[in-house]
């Protein structure tokens, strides 16, 4: 019994040392990783709405796929559009994306922010051009949830990544609905 307890104690000590190593690395790198994330987010925001000014991120309370939004202006005055951060479910993991929406919910652009799907599965969706098929939808024209309604060219682009496509379409529809319901005005 004592022999087993001793071995268990030693293994627990080794595991603790391993955990401490990871925690130390995390502490050393946390601020640099956070700064990198902020820089990348800002670059994506600039790419989504070039030449516009952005406000601070406003988080949305409660359990909602919409995590928050950045109000956006083209000049002085009230916010005209907003960039919504929304999360969705892809293949074997989630993702979050930024959707630039007009007041009426029309999607003006979108970009993946963070992809935690099985590596390689949703790679195609990471290119900015992938989101072009959703631009102009969300208001008068509904978000194409069913890939069968896409043009032949767009259909070829989503072939093989249909789970990712469905997740992105649903997330964009939720972002559009959030803006239409006045969520960004509250």
């Amino acid at each position: 019994m004592n022999k087993h307890a001793l071995a268990a104690g030693k293994i627990a000590g080794i595991c603790l040392a391993c955990i401490l190593l990871v925690v130390l690395a995390r502490l050393l790198t946390a601020s640099a990783i956070e700064r990198r994330g902020e820089r990348e987010t800002y670059q994506i925001l600039e790419g989504l709405a070039p030449g516009r000014a952005f406000g601070m991120f406003r988080p949305v309370e409660g359990k909602h796929p919409v995590l928050g939004f950045y109000p956006s202006w083209s000049g002085p005055g009230k916010a005209e559009t907003c960039i919504v951060q929304v999360q969705g479910n892809g293949y074997g993991g989630g993702f979050s994306l930024l959707a630039h929406c007009a007041d009426d919910g029309e999607i003006l652009g979108a970009r993946l922010l963070d992809n935690r799907e099985i590596p390689g599965m949703g790679k195609a969706a990471q290119s900015p051009e992938y989101m072009d098929k959703f631009v102009g939808t969300g208001a008068a024209k509904p978000v194409p949830l069913d890939p069968k309604k896409l043009s032949q060219k767009d259909l070829a682009a989503v072939s093989g990544v249909s789970v990712t496509y469905a997740g992105i379409a649903r997330a964009l529809e939720q972002a559009s609905a959030f803006v239409k319901a006045g969520g960004s005005k509250k």
Binding site: V22, L28, T29, R36
Partner: peptide, 10 residues
């Protein structure tokens, strides 16, 4: 994991 974090940061 530590190597991965260091690469992500720097």
């Amino acid at each position: 994991s530590a190597a991965d974090l260091l690469m992500q940061a720097y």
